[in-house]
Simulated scan of single mutants.
Amino acid sequence: MTDAAVYTAKAHAVGGRQGTAKTDDGHLDVKLGYPKSMGGDGQGTNPEQLFAAGYAACFLGALGLVARGQGVKLGEHSLDSEVDLIKDEVSFHIGVRLTLNAPEVDRAVAEDLLHKAHQVCPYSKATRGNVVVELKVA
């Protein structure tokens, strides 16, 4: 990588999907487990939930950046993120749906902001070309 990092997140995982994961600063310390739909007991979180939460938070940051740049006040807003684990011929892949809830913003403006945020969000950039991401306004 040629660009200088402004921040580096550090995490340590043990035991895969049936183990634990924690960050070096202790802010995240989770038990991992298979969801019931995959034969687990549903007693731990899973990588898809963590990815969904991270993507939603990051995307909202990108949305705020784009909205400020266009002089749009978002008012109360939120983002619902759904991450599917999909079986394919070899193993698995993921699919993502992001739904913007911004009731104080005109629908056409919200859709424009959503698509522009998708161009600048680091998670969107990282998944582009590898993951199908559906965008919609509630």
Rank of each mutant, 00 (worst) to 15 (best):
Gly44Arg: 04
Gln43Val: 11
Asp29Phe: 03
His77Trp: 09
Asp112Gln: 12
Ile86Tyr: 00
Ser91Arg: 12
Asp112Ser: 14
Gly71Asp: 02
His77Asp: 04
Gln43Asn: 13
Ala21Gln: 07
Pro47Leu: 06
Ala57Lys: 01
Gln18Ser: 15
Ser37Tyr: 06
Ala138Gln: 14
Gly129Pro: 09
Val137Ile: 13
Gly95Glu: 15
Pro103Gly: 05
Gly33Ile: 13
Met38Val: 02
His12Lys: 12
Met38Gly: 02
Arg17Thr: 11
Cys58His: 09
Lys10Phe: 00
Asp106Met: 01
Pro103Leu: 10
Lys31Arg: 15
Val131Glu: 07
His27Thr: 05
Ala52Asn: 01
Met38Arg: 15
Thr23Asn: 12
Leu60Glu: 14
Ala126Ser: 12
Lys10Val: 10
Thr20Asp: 11
Ala56Arg: 02
His115Phe: 09
Gly95Phe: 04
Asp80Ile: 10
Ser37Asp: 15
Glu82Tyr: 00
Val14Asp: 15
Ala5Pro: 07
Phe51Cys: 11
Val14Arg: 14
Glu89Ser: 14
Val105Asp: 09
Lys136Ile: 08
Arg17Phe: 12
Lys116Cys: 02
Gly26Ile: 08
Ala126Val: 06
His27Ala: 13
Val14Pro: 00
Val72Cys: 05
Leu74Arg: 02
Leu85Gln: 02
Lys87Met: 08
Ala117Phe: 08
Gly54Lys: 03
Tyr55Gly: 04
Gly71Tyr: 01
Lys22Thr: 04
Ala9His: 06
Lys116Trp: 01
Arg68Ile: 00
Pro122Phe: 06
Lys136Tyr: 00
Asp29His: 10
Leu74Pro: 04
Leu85Trp: 06
Thr99Ala: 15
Asp106Asn: 13
Ala67Gln: 07
Cys121Met: 08
Cys121Ile: 06
Ser91Tyr: 02
Pro122Ala: 10
Thr23Met: 09
Gly95Thr: 11
Pro47Lys: 10
Lys87Ala: 15
Ala53His: 01
Glu82His: 07
His77Thr: 11
Ala13Gly: 14
